[in-house]
Structures are given as C-alpha cells and as structure tokens.
C-alpha cells in the first residue's frame, strides 16, 4: 500500500545525539506531508478535505522548521501513499498523528539544546491537536488516555517503518 519507506529511515539511525533525534522527527514530518498531499489530491469533501489541506500546510511548516534547526534527512524520494477513500485516509492519519505525538514526547527529553526542546515542544502540541481532531472526525475519543505515550527513538522508527509498509 505504501512504498519507499526506507527513504526516511536510512539516515536517522546513522546520526547520533540531537542530530539523530531531529532526523527521526523530520522523517515523521515527511511521512505526514506525503500523507496529506496524497489526500489533498483526492476528491474529498467538507471537513475531511479542509482538514487534509490545513494539516498538510502545518506539517510542511514543521518540516521546514526542523530543517532550519539543522535536521538532515535522507536524500531519497519521499514515501508514496496510495489510499483512495476517506476512511482509509483518516485511519492512516490517526495512526501517524498518534505516532508523531509519541515520537516527539520520547525525543524531547533526549535533546540537549534548550532551543531545540522549545521548538519541538511547540510542534508536538500541534501534532496532538491534529491527532485529537482526526479522532473526533472518526468518532473516537480525542484523548484516549490521561497521559500520552512517549516512544524511544528506536521504537518510533520501527513504528514508522511498519506504518510505511516495512
């Protein structure tokens, strides 16, 4: 269903420290951008179309910000999604936004640079808002637990690989 997942992940493991953490977060953002771009090209309507457009713009801004902060990802092509229905899109969006929240929450305590902590915390808040909004659209609980999970980078990377079809 989704191809070229190796794209994003190839360089995340190769970097260490703050650079490795940022590379993982950039990989998550690139996957989200690809998801919403694919959705924006489909004849979706109403709130789903509005959400895909808005959230796609916001994920692109996240990726740009991470790049300006020094994040370096793979030179490979971005992931390709091939879903064609609103329900498949929203299911993937729920998984990916939830993964993003966990990835950031696990990554932020590992960052040494306070400026990076501040910048990534401002992003994870919006990832959580995206996650909740998608869940509401799917008539799911917006906050399924009182404490959001935090994924260690290796776990987040594996989860992303699985979601991208690896």
């Amino acid at each position: 269903m989704i191809t070229r997942r190796s794209l994003l992940l190839a360089q995340t493991s190769a970097q260490s420290g703050d650079a490795g953490v940022l590379a993982l977060l950039l990989a998550v953002e690139h996957a989200q951008v690809a998801l919403y771009e694919h959705a924006a090209g489909l004849p979706f309507h109403g709130r789903v179309a509005e959400l895909a457009g808005r959230f796609g713009d916001e994920e692109r801004k996240h990726a740009d910000r991470l790049g300006k902060l020094g994040a370096r990802g793979s030179e490979s092509a971005p992931p390709v999604f091939d879903f064609d229905s609103e329900s498949k899109f929203l299911r993937l969006a729920q998984r990916l936004e939830g993964l993003a929240v966990g990835a950031y929450n696990g990554a932020i305590p590992l960052l040494a640079d306070p400026g990076l902590k501040r910048a990534t915390a401002a992003i994870v808040q919006v990832e959580a808002r995206h996650s909740a909004a998608v869940r509401v659209l799917r008539r799911s609980e917006p906050a399924p637990r009182a404490f959001d999970r935090a994924f260690e980078p290796a776990r987040a990377e594996r989860a992303l690989a699985t979601l991208l079809g690896g």
């Binding site: 994920e59 929450n105 994870v124 808040q125 919006v126 909740a132 917006p142």
Partner: peptide, 29 residues
Amino acid sequence: LSIHTVEARHATALNLLLGKSPTPNGAFG
C-alpha cells in the same frame, strides 16, 4: 510532556465542539 499533549487534545475537542479551529495558532503552539 505526557500531560501537555493531552491538554492540547482536550482543547481541540472543545474547540471543535464550539466550531473553532483545531489549531488556533497555526502550525506551532
């Protein structure tokens, strides 16, 4: 951090219930 994102989820659910934007400050909290 684990509570911060849940507060953001709560805020979003209520924003939507009141017809407001889920991301009132755009891409960055």
